[in-house]
Simulated scan of single mutants.
Amino acid sequence: MHWLWAIAVGLVLGVLARLILPGKQEMPLWLTALLGLVGGLLGNAVAHWIGVGHTKGIDWVRHALQLGGAVLMIVVGAPLWARLHASRKAT
């Protein structure tokens, strides 16, 4: 059941990241969820590394880092997807 929760959180993080970023990202929803999931894991790792992975109450810093990781992954992944998709259309 954890994998289902991870996919849902990844989708939410990916969609939020795409809303934050200016312009239109031409990539499918599954890739948004995957990049959001990877960004969330990256944000969790950074949160644990700096010592704010588990706090009392709501972990706002960890959630902000997860969203930041998702934004970073969308910033990196969207142009790569567009380039790959454009090269497939050209062939």
Rank of each mutant, 00 (worst) to 15 (best):
Ser87Cys: 06
Leu84Phe: 15
Ala6Phe: 08
Leu31Cys: 10
Asp59Gln: 11
Gln25Pro: 04
Ala6Arg: 10
Ala90Glu: 15
Ala8Pro: 01
Thr32Tyr: 01
Ala70Glu: 00
Val12Phe: 12
Trp49Val: 05
Leu11Pro: 02
Arg88Phe: 12
Gly14Tyr: 00
Leu42Tyr: 10
His2Ser: 11
Thr32Trp: 02
Ala17Ile: 08
Leu11Val: 05
His54Asp: 15
Ala78Phe: 04
Arg83Ile: 14
Arg83Gln: 09
His2Leu: 12
Gly10Pro: 02
Leu13Ala: 05
Leu42Lys: 02
Trp3Pro: 00
Gly43Pro: 03
Ala8Cys: 07
Ile58Gln: 11
Gly23Thr: 13
Gly77Trp: 05
Ile20Val: 15
Leu41Pro: 00
Gly53Phe: 08
Gly77Arg: 07
Gln66Asn: 06
Arg88Ile: 10
Leu35Lys: 04
Gln25Glu: 08
Leu34Pro: 05
Leu31Ala: 15
Ala64Phe: 14
Val61Lys: 07
Val38Ser: 03
Ile7Cys: 05
Leu37Met: 08
Leu37Trp: 09
Trp60Val: 13
Trp49Met: 06
Val9Tyr: 10
Val15Lys: 06
Ala64Ile: 14
His63Trp: 15
Lys89Cys: 10
Trp5Met: 09
Pro22Trp: 15
Met73Ile: 07
Gly43Lys: 02
His85Ala: 14
Arg83Glu: 07
His48Tyr: 15
Val38Ile: 15
Gly53Pro: 06
Gly10Phe: 01
Lys24Tyr: 12
Asn44Thr: 11
Val75Gln: 13
Ala17Pro: 03
Ala86Cys: 02
Arg88Ser: 06
His54Pro: 07
Ala78Pro: 02
Leu31His: 12
Trp49Tyr: 10
Ala90His: 12
Ala70Tyr: 03
Gln25Tyr: 10
Val46Gln: 00
Leu35Glu: 01
His54Ser: 15
Gly53Cys: 09
Leu19Val: 15
Gly43Glu: 04
Pro28Tyr: 11
Gly69Glu: 01
Arg18Met: 12
Gly23Pro: 11
Leu72Asp: 03
Leu65Asn: 01
Thr55Trp: 08
Thr32Ile: 11
Asn44Val: 11
His2Lys: 09
Val61Pro: 00
Trp60Ala: 13
Gly68Trp: 07
Trp5Asp: 09
Ala33Asn: 02
Val71Glu: 07
Ala47Gln: 00
Val38Trp: 08
Arg83Lys: 14
Leu42Asp: 04
Met1His: 08
Ala17Arg: 08
Ile58Thr: 12
Met1Gly: 11
Leu19Trp: 15
Ala33Thr: 09
Arg62Tyr: 04
Leu29Cys: 05
Gly14Val: 01
Ala47Ser: 06
Ala64Asn: 08
Thr55Asp: 04
Leu65Pro: 02
Leu21Pro: 09
Leu13Trp: 06
Leu65Cys: 03
Gln25Asn: 08
Trp30Pro: 06
His63Asn: 15
Lys56Arg: 13
Leu19Gly: 14
Gly68Val: 10
Arg18Val: 08
Ala33His: 03
Leu19Ile: 15
Arg18Tyr: 05
Ala64Gly: 14
Ala64His: 07
Ala90Asn: 10
Leu80Glu: 07
Ala78Arg: 04
Lys89His: 13
Val15Leu: 12
Leu31Arg: 14
Leu65Lys: 03
His63Gly: 12
Trp5Arg: 14
Gly40Ala: 02
Ile74His: 03
Asn44Lys: 09
Leu80Asp: 04
Met1Tyr: 07
Leu35Trp: 04
His48Val: 10
Ala64Pro: 05
Gly51Ile: 02
Leu29Ala: 11
Ile50Val: 05
Ala86Asp: 11
Leu37Lys: 01
Leu67Lys: 06
Leu21Gln: 14
